[in-house]
Write a protein that binds this DNA or RNA. Structure first.
Length: 168
DNA sequence: ACTCGGATTCTC
DNA sequence: AGAATCCGAGTA
């Protein structure tokens, strides 16, 4: 069953590990595809020097300042779309990067495989007809924690925080 | 306006 | 180890 608003409105560090093992559902004109989430990264609010929210609210990241359950999409290196889920209450500016799903490792490849692009910016996972996340009733997965990738520009302690979660 | 560099991936 | 490739953020 589809995850509701209360799931996303918790703190990002609670939601991130909970997303592991959940089912990302993509509905298109050619059918429905499902992907189990295997790897995510948590990005904190304005105090997180690795987060896009570190400069405050801007045209690009303003959706992060909205309430949890919305999608934040942005382009990186001029060629890859990154799929993120906003979490927490309004104005907390937290988001989770979907870094991998079953059989697809790498955030750029996930977005490409699901056909995610700019048009998903602000998509509402609670009521969208083309993208949402479902619970699956399995035992709590074994989760490993590691430092986040590609954020060397952020100083300590952010660089070393174990905010990357993946299926063991 | 202009510069700088990135929450990446693929190829050599 | 380097290329591909462009938009956003910061500075002015």
């Amino acid at each position: 069953m589809r995850l509701d608003q209360s799931f996303y409105e918790r703190d990002v560090l609670q939601v991130a590990p909970d997303l592991i093992g959940k089912i990302l559902v993509r509905n298109t004109s050619s059918g429905i595809s499902v992907h189990m989430i295997t790897e995510v990264e948590a990005y904190g609010g304005t105090e997180d020097e690795a987060s896009h929210a570190r400069f405050g609210k801007t045209a690009r990241n303003k959706i992060m300042f909205d309430c949890g359950g919305l999608v934040y999409v942005y382009l990186i290196y001029g060629m890859y779309w990154m799929l993120n889920i906003v979490t927490g209450p309004k104005d907390h500016a937290q988001a989770i990067l979907i870094r991998g799903v079953e059989n697809i490792n790498g955030p750029g490849k996930v977005a490409r495989a699901l056909g995610i692009d700019r048009s998903f910016y602000g998509e509402n996972l609670i009521n969208s007809t083309r993208l949402w996340i479902e619970d699956q009733h399995i035992a709590k997965p074994s989760i490993r924690r590691e430092p986040r990738l590609g954020i060397n520009y952020a100083g300590e302690p952010w660089k070393s925080k174990p905010w990357r979660f993946h299926l063991d």
